[in-house]
Nucleic acid binder design. Structure first.
Length: 724
DNA sequence: ATAGGGTTAG
């Protein structure tokens, strides 16, 4: 597959009529290669920790006080991004060679301008008015209404066609059929009548219906028939084939048919071209998309809003903020006005890139430009504000939605509920939930119930959560794995272990497949349970993830060697979803600490660090070193703090240099229900009699000066010496 | 749905 893609992207293999064959000529994309270069840098910048390659994304959601317009915020971009950059070591030797001579420009006026796409869009023949339209529409309706399984009935209706099936009449009916099966039957009937030659448009219309039914194989068969029968395949044919392949996830087929266009000397127009851009974008082949894009630009193509929506979506999926900025810049410099879809795509992309402030600016820019948001716009924005914990903005937007009468749909209702769950807005959620129950078309479904379970679960409202659980089975709404997790978390915290076991069993018996999050949740319950409860929860976990239970047993055995723990733990992490790895490690550390297996806890924390589960745990600036424990569980935070004190102690003893300030950050706990870590950390600091004090001006920060730490170490050494 | 390309939920 990879070889095939790179072959397609090598212009020299494209046998296009206007392409220069002289290899000494510079390739056409030289003219814009410096633009492409920006990209290769921004998209290859992500680093992966060793071995397990967990791609922990850090959500940067720091709130900006000022709110300049988006174009103002982008201004510095044009000064920084356009500067020449050093060659990127990640690029292929071929790319590097090209980049080393950025001055090379396509200058050969005697040859035609090399082109990868036709700047003229394929023209469509216009329909002439068909006086028989009423009769034929009625006929098509009969065909549509006939029993889909009864082919004989269909044939019987065909015989009663009210007007002769000439070219125009046949096209009209063919265009009116809904199911692909009937379209195909009608198409074949017309063919067997043999009244007129079957032109490209008949194939195209039939293929469109087949694409709607995702019948790629039928489409490909028809395309091959066209080739056999000498019927021309045009841009409409190809774009239909390519997009059908794409929707069926047959990306190699999409590329194969795209290649064939050039091979047969047909130049794609911008519709086909942007369809192919989307194929590569769906394959997450960012480099290839940009290469195609740049070559299209070099051919004189002025991309339209749809092409930019494709790019925006791709960069959003990659969480690539530089890419998103590039799309905005490029549209601005080409004078392409974003439409609603482009705005929606870019807003979503901003969310995925962790830029809520820029999403907000972009939204205001959109509204100011006179474009009204639709359900998708609002869904994207509500989700962003919820994830960023921007309660004020979320509620303001909600008010605006109501006062402006902006459109709502089911997904938006559920997104509002999820946002309430993210922000802990219990009353607002309850009001909305009641509205939904009273509505006709937006009755709560499993998503809605999950959001409510999430709210009650994280709020510790176990009775309301259980009431919802009963209500769900009464209303025939199925619990899903996330709702189950919320409920179990809540029951665990309330120590209602028998209810927990019951919910777990009903869920698994009902077909819920426990995922890593649910296992992590059970694991956390294990960490703070005692007595017989531990075994009850472990029995659930055994059903969901037996390896994990075996690992806990291994940790508990005193004779277990570190090497053994290391090996087993690596295996477990490798088989765990990336975003569940840190919670697993946190819980396992807690389990060890609650069983006085402190040495094990330190071993686990060490391995978690090695595998990149705790990036930025320790940061060193010239004047301050900081231990960042905000993503750690209580036990893991204690373990990390002990580890750090040990290191500091050794450094003092060896008289190594310390910075002026030492600090430990537990975070302020932006979530309404997450205040536990700071308190637990404070009492642990006290228990250890460590010299750290709660900072006066920054919440969730514990600070000590170099002198504090030094004298603390020395006094401890003295007291130890005097007791022995 | 009247021959072709792009966007919404843990």
């Amino acid at each position: 597959m990879a070889a095939k893609l790179s072959a397609v992207l090598d212009v020299h293999q494209w046998n296009t009529p206007s392409y220069p064959t002289d290899k000494k000529q510079p390739p056409p994309y030289f003219t814009r290669i410096s633009t492409h270069k920006r990209f290769t840098i921004s998209c290859t910048s992500s680093k992966s920790p060793p071995k397990l390659s967990p791609n922990n994304k850090t959500e940067s959601s720091s709130r900006k006080r000022k709110n300049p317009s988006l174009s103002d915020q982008l201004k510095p971009l044009s000064t920084t991004i356009l500067a020449d950059q050093p060659p990127n070591p990640h690029q292929s030797p071929q790319q590097q060679k090209l980049l080393s001579k950025p001055k090379s420009i396509w200058v050969n006026p005697t040859k035609p301008k090399p082109s990868v796409l036709s700047l003229q869009r394929q023209k469509r023949s216009s329909y002439s008015y068909n006086p028989q339209i009423r009769d034929l529409k009625l006929f098509a309706k009969k065909l549509n209404d006939s029993d889909p399984l009864d082919e004989a009935a269909f044939q019987a209706i065909l015989a009663e066609i009210p007007h002769p099936p000439n070219r125009e009449n046949a096209l009209l009916v063919l265009n009116s059929l809904r199911s692909w099966e009937k379209t195909l039957l009608f198409f074949n009937w017309i063919r067997t009548l043999n009244l007129f030659p079957i032109e490209t448009i008949f194939y195209n219309v039939t293929m469109k219906s087949l694409r709607y039914g995702r019948q790629f194989q039928h489409i490909e068969n028809l395309a091959n028939e066209m080739i056999e029968n000498g019927v021309e395949l045009d841009n409409i044919t190809y774009s239909t084939i390519i997009t059908c392949a794409k929707r069926c996830n047959l990306f190699d087929k999409a590329v194969e048919w795209f290649e064939r266009m050039y091979r047969t000397g047909l130049m794609p127009d911008e519709v086909t071209y942007s369809a192919v851009l989307d194929v590569y974008a769906k394959l997450r082949k960012v480099e290839e998309v940009m290469s195609l894009y740049e070559r299209g630009r070099a051919s004189g193509w002025k991309p339209d809003a749809i092409a930019f929506a494709v790019l925006g979506k791709m960069f959003g999926e990659a969480g690539d903020y530089d890419g998103i900025r590039y799309v905005l810049e490029e549209m601005k410099s080409l004078g392409v006005q974003p439409n609603l879809v482009v705005y929606n795509t870019l807003l979503e992309a901003m969310g995925k890139a962790g830029k809520p402030g820029l999403a907000r600016s972009l939204f205001e820019e959109m509204v100011d430009s006179g474009i009204d948001p639709d359900e998708k716009t609002l869904t994207a924005l509500i989700k962003i504000y919820g994830k960023a914990r921007w309660a004020k903005d979320a509620l303001e937007l909600w008010d605006r939605m109501k006062s402006n009468g902006w459109p709502m749909d089911f997904i938006l209702y559920n997104s509002l509920l999820s946002m309430c769950a993210d922000l802990g807005l219990e009353e607002e959620a309850e009001g909305l939930f009641e509205n939904m129950k009273g509505s006709e078309y937006c009755k709560p479904d499993s998503w809605s119930y999950t959001a409510m379970l999430n709210i009650y679960g994280s709020g510790g409202n176990v009775d309301k959560a259980m009431k919802l659980f009963e209500e769900m089975s009464e209303n025939g709404v199925e619990l899903n794995v996330m709702g189950c997790t919320c409920l179990i978390q809540c029951l665990g915290r309330a120590k209602r272990i028998d209810d927990l076991v019951r919910v777990f069993q009903i869920s698994v018996d009902g077909g819920i497949k426990p995922d890593d999050r649910l296992c992590g949740c059970l694991l956390s319950v294990v960490s703070y349970c005692d007595g017989e409860d531990v075994n009850k929860v472990l029995a659930c976990l055994l059903r969901a993830n037996p390896t994990l239970v075996a690992f806990i047993k291994l940790l508990e055995k005193e004779e277990t060697h570190f090497e053994n723990v290391k090996e087993e733990f690596k295996g477990i992490l490798s088989n765990t979803a990336v975003d569940a790895r840190r919670p697993f490690c946190n819980c396992l550390i807690d389990i060890c600490r609650n069983r006085d297996l402190h040495e094990r806890a330190h071993e686990l924390l060490y391995m978690g660090t090695v595998y990149g589960l705790y990036p930025g745990l320790h940061t060193k600036a010239a004047e301050e070193w900081r231990l960042n424990v905000r993503s750690l569980s209580v036990g893991a935070a204690h373990t990390a703090f002990e580890e750090w004190l040990g290191t500091l102690t050794k450094m003092v003893q060896r008289q190594e240099a310390l910075p002026e300030l030492l600090s430990a950050s537990t975070g302020a706990g932006t979530h309404k229900y997450s205040q536990g870590l700071g308190n637990a950390f404070a009492s642990h600091v006290e228990k250890l009699a460590a010299p750290f004090r709660i900072s006066d001006n920054k919440a969730g920060l514990f600070v000590a000066t170099r002198e504090d730490v030094t004298s603390w170490v020395q006094s401890r050494a003295t007291s130890l010496a005097s007791t022995t």
